[in-house]
Design a protein around this nucleic acid. Sequence first.
DNA 1: TACGATACGGAGGGTCCCTCCGTTTGTCAA
DNA 2: TTGACAAACGGAGGGACCCTCCGTATCGTA
Lengths: 195, 195
Amino acid sequence: MSTTTASDQLLVRPKRADARRNYEKVLSAAREAFLEGGEDTSLEEIARRAGVGIGTLYRHFPNRQALLEALYAGEVEELSRSAAELDAKEPWDALSLWFERFIAYLATKRALAGELLNYMDKDAPLFAASRASMFAAGEPLLKRAQEAGVVRPDVEFGEILQMVMGIGKIPTADPAQTEHMLRIALDGLRYRPQD
Amino acid sequence: MSTTTASDQLLVRPKRADARRNYEKVLSAAREAFLEGGEDTSLEEIARRAGVGIGTLYRHFPNRQALLEALYAGEVEELSRSAAELDAKEPWDALSLWFERFIAYLATKRALAGELLNYMDKDAPLFAASRASMFAAGEPLLKRAQEAGVVRPDVEFGEILQMVMGIGKIPTADPAQTEHMLRIALDGLRYRPQD
DNA sequence: TACGATACGGAGGGTCCCTCCGTTTGTCAA
DNA sequence: TTGACAAACGGAGGGACCCTCCGTATCGTA
């Protein structure tokens, strides 16, 4: 254990060049396959597209879920970052716009999203990072809207997130319909039982 | 226009006694298995529980989907019928109560519902009957609420149904949370952009 | 160059859905 | 009651998929 190498290498083990290359090949083959093909593309098919053996695929991604998660991670982060630029807008607009983007994102990556949501169902811990990222980005928007009095105070961010995901997960021929449903559901956030 | 009742009998050929018996055995074994076990109980397991061969199961239900549909049909009808007794209530209460029952139903039969919704996604035609039944029961409730002015006029029943299904499909540790989300989403139905 | 660590790849085990077809059983006319 | 035949049964097995295991090839370094 005479690791005299640089200290920063302790966490990130230097992978072999071919390993790094194959990792990327699999990832991009998977992205491509999920986008164009069905959501149920087999891992064997993905390995073939990537030009690697199935064993190699599994070396990098211990199971289907892990591969999905790896694909997902980058996108979620991007989505989360996009919350920052909404700070300038009105509290309500910021919140609803962000969710609209989220839905739009789900729509684009329907196949991917479907799979992910499926796994999210039964094995949440794997998505802890992504979830945390979503919370970090979206929760402040909600809080701001609630403090501004434009959103009812009795809702939590997690609830809304799940609601929106549920709506987004529904496959519809017409994307506009999904957006319509989202808008209605979000309007529920500002309903006041004034009676 | 209505279907000729006489011709209906042409479709129902007298089945052999053992066939009828096995049909029921499979159906009840499936119901039991899906309720207690996971949603991914294999058809082989169901056949074993029913005490029939896998071939027999497939004779009666050409595929997994068909079995689910058969299980589902009865329940949906019951749910639909329950709309009738809501006529006496206030338009809004009737509508929201009915959807609450729907959600509750989905919660009870989570496994079943999950499977069904999955199949509904990609192969709607099979569910034409069930869908029609839901529409027949629920759409009048919506219309009534809209005419009474307690629900925004720019929504269609199909949309709401999908929205509710999406929310219902989300697995949550706490059923109360699902109900909360439903209530929020439904409140969106009566939001007025009156500001 | 030589050698150990690392990574590759695909055969194969286990599971599942569904089909096919030889065998069994219910039904009914004689 | 009996015999014959359509109807129904049951399970072996094909095909697809996920994932594991391990002998082989390759990389990086001394």
